[in-house]
Design a protein around this nucleic acid. Structure first.
Lengths: 337, 337
DNA sequence: CTGAAAGCGCTTACAG
DNA sequence: CTGAAAGCGCTTACAG
């Protein structure tokens, strides 16, 4: 009952173990009668090939590594759902590596991944340094492990395929929308920490402001709510503002809360928009206008691209940019809810 | 440069491969000089043992399977962080399985896990059926794979160890807190779907209400915001309510929004409390009073307990209940912010 | 403390 | 279409 091996199956089916292996992996190479007999025995014995033996003999693991930073970021979790669903379809298992950006353990982790003999690697860390990129390139070239950057931007290099949306355009469009409302003093609220994705959003914002001959003003704040609150309060006293595009929904909601506490009306006095369309956007009052990023799809498409690479199929488009939408809600003047 | 094997190391260090293996796994069995020489060569060659060969030969994988439902639930993601941090300390890799409760694929997945030869299993699905529990028990007994239920309640059975908080007590205390404010018409807002954790919260609520001779009223709603809104609106017209304990923060916030839209003052007219202390609680206005569930710790402790089981250490406490707090904020009369 | 050798459970040319 | 056999890269008694 415990663990049936391929020998047990071979014995019970009166064939050699080679035939059992073929019946599983290359059914077309086995005579139908034999195949069925073998498959029936497999079923009866509840046989499952030992993943280690299989991996060792075939040098393929049907496992992909997924490298993520802090798991509790809403976008990461939802991307995982997309990845897992597609992985299931193609029968890949997922080895999860949560890396700490603060540590310098990343190199070790990547070595571990090589040792684990994964067939492919998905990298979801939106903050990628030159060093990390080099490391990935090494893994890719030296160990021939296909990699896809999932929502991870590394501009000016398409040697590693990537899947994301065009954050520059999204930032541009969102800003443009507020400009079209007649807003003049639009701030972008970004993060102190440099994230490549946020950088792109800033670029789009700058382009829109420049095009409209408006003065661009980027305010950098923390992701922590308590810190934001003070920060925003101070800004209110010293700046004129009638529009805000925040790089994250939660920052936008946080801003709205402070604004309302200061008796500012949203959206009458200030239009506020965010990024991502998380649950925060629907739970805030007023509901938040934001860029809807297809997070699940980014994960799913990444995994799909990776399967192609792992099968040596040619991937025509190496930097996939998925479409995004803007969802207009009550926090801006233009409001379709 | 590509892949150094144990033979390469043995050759370069002028020892047998057995000694290399020992230098890595049982350093005390190797003479210090030899050991250091081997370790130096390993470093030079960038040698990493092949995980498959190691797994096949040793029948241990230093891998644990983590089975979760939908990843994007905030609590699951944060538990993963706790699990991953402890797993790293004990050098375990994580194989992630996202199961779909709707499907009946769970049995297949569990078979797959057995085939993957994991050393242990963490089960994070808060909704566990008898059938699933039987399946786990089989894996546990028949294949000798240790299992820990992480925040997954299955009452009246402690054959499989578990880690969580006492949701019944938490529900009781939270309700009691509103009763102590003088609230008389306290509703529990729970989910239509039966989750064991929510069931426990309801039990605690019922106990507190009964004890105070108040009429218990449980309202079941959906997790979806759009559905909630209508549902709450209707309730307002037909019921007298001055207190609400919601089983999730997001439901509580959603309720607050509807209440305020109906010109009800929070907390003057209705005290509202939630569960979990997610970011929603801090982003809502007013800030939400809620039970603070130590999600990260639940994950971390689970993993720690699992390592003990995997090392055949005895685990004295098989149903660990971690401590919880109640955080009082502006959505209730008692308010420490 | 160290080495030779068997064995872990598969896959995959190579023959037939 | 099928089988015998080598080999994947380790671990672990067993000797010495």
């Amino acid at each position: 009952m415990s663990k049936a091996t391929i020998y047990d199956v071979a014995g019970a089916a009166r064939v050699s173990l080679a035939t059992v292996s073929r019946a599983i992996n290359n059914p077309e190479k086995v005579k139908p009668e034999t195949r069925e007999r073998v498959l029936r025995v497999i079923e009866e014995l509840g046989y499952k090939p030992n993943a280690f033996a299989k991996g060792l003999a075939s040098r393929k693991s049907t496992t992909v590594a997924v490298v993520v930073p802090d798991m509790s970021r809403a976008s990461i979790a939802e991307m995982m759902n997309g990845i897992a669903d597609i992985a299931r379809v193609y029968k890949y298992s997922i080895l999860l590596y949560i890396v700490d950006n603060e540590d310098n353990t990343e190199e070790d982790i990547l070595k571990e991944i090589v040792a684990a003999q994964v067939d492919g690697l998905l990298y979801l860390n939106d903050e990628i340094t030159d060093k990390q990129h080099d490391l990935l390139r090494t893994i890719n070239n030296e160990y021939q492990i296909p990699i896809v950057l999932t929502n991870t931007l590394y501009p000016d290099a398409d040697d590693i395929p990537s899947v994301s949306i065009d954050y520059e355009v999204a930032g541009y469009e969102m800003t443009k929308a507020l400009i079209n409302e007649g807003r003049q003093h639009i701030f972008m609220v970004s993060t102190v920490r440099k994230y490549m994705v946020n950088d792109q959003k800033e670029q789009g914002y700058l382009r829109a402001m420049k095009e409209a001959n408006l003065e661009a003003k980027i305010m950098r704040t923390s992701g922590r709510i308590s810190i934001n609150t003070e920060h925003f309060n101070e800004y209110f006293k010293n700046h004129k503002v009638d529009g805000v595009v925040a790089v994250r929904d939660s920052i936008a909601v946080s801003f709205i809360n402070v604004a309302r506490a200061n008796h500012v009306k949203i959206p009458e006095d200030i239009s506020v928009a965010g990024f991502q369309n998380t649950k925060y956007a629907s739970l805030s009052r007023p509901n938040l206008t934001c860029v809807d990023v297809p997070i699940y799809d980014i994960g799913a498409v990444s995994m799909r691209v990776l399967t192609k690479l792992m099968n040596q199929e040619t991937v025509e488009d190496r930097t996939v940019k998925l479409d995004h939408d803007i969802i207009y809600r009550a926090s801006t003047l233009k409001n379709e809810e």
